[in-house]
Each structure stands twice: as C-alpha cells, then as structure tokens.
Write a protein that binds this DNA or RNA. Structure first.
Lengths: 115, 115
DNA sequence: AATTTGTGAAACCAAAAGGTTTCGTATAAC
DNA sequence: GTTATACGAAACCTTTTGGTTTCACAAATT
C-alpha cells in the first residue's frame, strides 16, 4: 500500500511516535508503552509510518526496533517552502491584519464598485 | 471547531485548493470549478481550511473570495525543521542505505551480543 | 417583478480511520 | 520441556471523512 507522508503525519500519535524514535531506536513495546491505547493500535500507527518510509523496522531476535527516517519529511519541507516567499512577502496572518487596520478606513468592507 | 493544520493539509484536494489560492484570491465557484467533485464537497474542504486559518473568506457582494494565509504553515515548517539536523546528520533513506551497504559485511543483521 | 447566480446548510451515505479483543507463533528465559 | 515475552494479524466496532443531493436565500441581472 502506497502511503502519503502528509497523511501519515496528520495524526498526533504518529507524530509523537516519530518524535520518540527520532533520537534512538525503540522496539514496538517500548513505543506502545508510552501511550494509553492498546499495543495493537500503536502497531497500526507504526505500520502506517513504515508504509511511507518514515520508519524502518529492524528485527533483533524476537524484538523489532523502529528506526526513524526523518529524511522522508523533505517532501513536506519542500511543499511548505515553495510558499515561504509568498507568505513572507504578504506578511500573513497577524501582521497582515494589523496592516489592514491602520492603512484602511474604519469600514473594512471593500465594496466592488465596478459599475 | 478547532482544526489542526497538519490534518488540514493531509488531503490532496485541500493542498490543491491552497495552491490555487496562494497566488490570487478566488471565489468559491472558481475554486470548485477546477475539481470534478461537487461544489458542496469543495465547500467543505474550504471550510476546514478556514477553520485552521489557512484560508480567509472575504465577502464581496454575493461572492466570497478565498484568500490563502500560508503563514499558518509555519507550525508545519517548524515541526519539520526540528528534525532537519537529525536527518542530515544521519544521511537518511537512500544515502544511509548505501552507507550501510559499503561499510558493513554482507550480513547486515547486527546481533545484540550484550552477554 | 421575475429570474439567475453564488453560496450556506441540512440530510444522508459509503468508506476509511482509529480503536478494541482475541488468537497464533517464533524467540528467550527458566 | 514449559512458560513468558514480543510480536503479527484477524475480526469486529464506532466515529470521522469525503462525498452526494436537495433546499433556502440574498445579491445581481434582465
């Protein structure tokens, strides 16, 4: 099954799993032990992460260690960065709001008077 | 409803909507016209994007223009960037694989011999 | 005034997501 | 050899998603 990195990191539990394994490899039980849901539930999250390459499982005896492959996040970084110019140029969100507040007259509604 | 940016950008249709509106504001119909699903379906996507601030709706007469607020993507950029050092240091994915191939002996299994 | 256009929202639906319990099995430990 | 551990996977369930059709309504057109 081909999984999407964007979808994989959409879930907070999966982001937490990545965070836990980013520094050091952990086996499945060690990972699931950190959450209050069942091991099976965590196992499914881990599976999704492996399906898009963000995690690699390495067997050692009866244990399976999860190794994070954060390099796979570059597709996300690239996607976000392509808009950085746009958002920095436009002074988005708060800055843009404040900009409008002081440059325009009280009534903000710009009526389309293309009569 | 408080929406999560990570979840909002998980859907490819929503990423496409952001892409379309990043350069110029478009009204709802103009946006939905670019997809082969119903206007109502696209409207729901737009709603989700507004709920997490990635899109702002501005009314002009009977039309509603969608303005992208890409600055909201900074939470994603920040989250990804915190791992950049990790993944660059480790030479993730392909590079790491190749690294292992040439530095280790044929049998890659590293047996834990902590007897 | 009547009609068209652009939208908001409700009711409904199938599939996917996220969770649970249960069971089988290979490896380690006793 | 028997038991305990660490998984993998199946069966099942509920909620969320992403989609549809339909209806209502205000603004713009004719």
């Amino acid at each position: 099954m081909r999984r999407d990195v964007f979808q994989a990191i959409a879930d907070p539990t999966r982001r937490e799993i990545l965070n836990m394994t980013a520094a050091e490899s952990l086996n499945i039980n060690a990972v699931s032990g950190q959450f209050d849901v069942s091991r099976a539930a965590i196992y499914k999250h881990i599976k999704i992460l492996t399906e898009c390459g963000l995690l690699v499982i390495k067997q050692q005896g009866r244990e399976r260690y999860c190794e994070a492959r954060m390099g796979k996040l570059n597709v996300v970084a690239d996607w976000v960065n392509q808009y950085r110019k746009t958002w920095e140029a436009r002074l988005d969100s708060l800055e843009m709001y404040l900009q409008e507040m002081k440059t325009k007259q009280p009534a903000t509604k710009k009526k389309n008077t293309k009569k």
